[in-house]
Amino acid sequence: MFRQSLARFLRTATRNNEVSGISTPRFYHERVVDHYNNPRNVGSFDKNDPHVGTGLVGAPACGDVMKLQIKVDENTGKIVDACFKTFGCGSAIASSSVATEWVKGRQMEEVTTIKNTEIAKHLSLPPVKLHCSMLAEDAIKAAVKDYEAKRAKSPGNAEPTLAEKASSA
């Protein structure tokens, strides 16, 4: 009887092994893989263009650097185009790719409220990769801030900037 139960135990053990062997843990969600393989809006705008805002951020411990740029319609304050360039891990590339998709066609006020948790959730990022989505959030904010700083410098624009509003909020 002991031998039987032992045999049964061993069979289940091997079967379990097989099962776990087949479903090897997938480290990335398919959306990350998709954005990594087909990143959207990769490229650069002229950073000296007055309609362009550039956000440049980095995670030094991993050696990642991320650039996100927005092109803004100065009359409506709408983001008409966005692009990014990221040198970093798959999660950082996917996060910035998603970020450009989300900011396109939206008002500047709206995009500063995009939270890293939304990006992370969308991409099902594991906890160790959360800082990649934070980097993307930082990049959006930095791009808006850069655009507003440019506008404030150009003559005839003295209204309070969005970045100031955001920081006081």
Partner: peptide, 22 residues
């Protein structure tokens, strides 16, 4: 301790690194 999750926005350093990587 070096903060593993630190994020920076130093434009001088980052644009230099961006250029190198490009």
């Amino acid at each position: 301790d070096v903060d593993e999750e630190e994020r920076i926005s130093d434009p001088e350093l980052l644009s230099e690194i961006m250029e190198i990587r490009e």
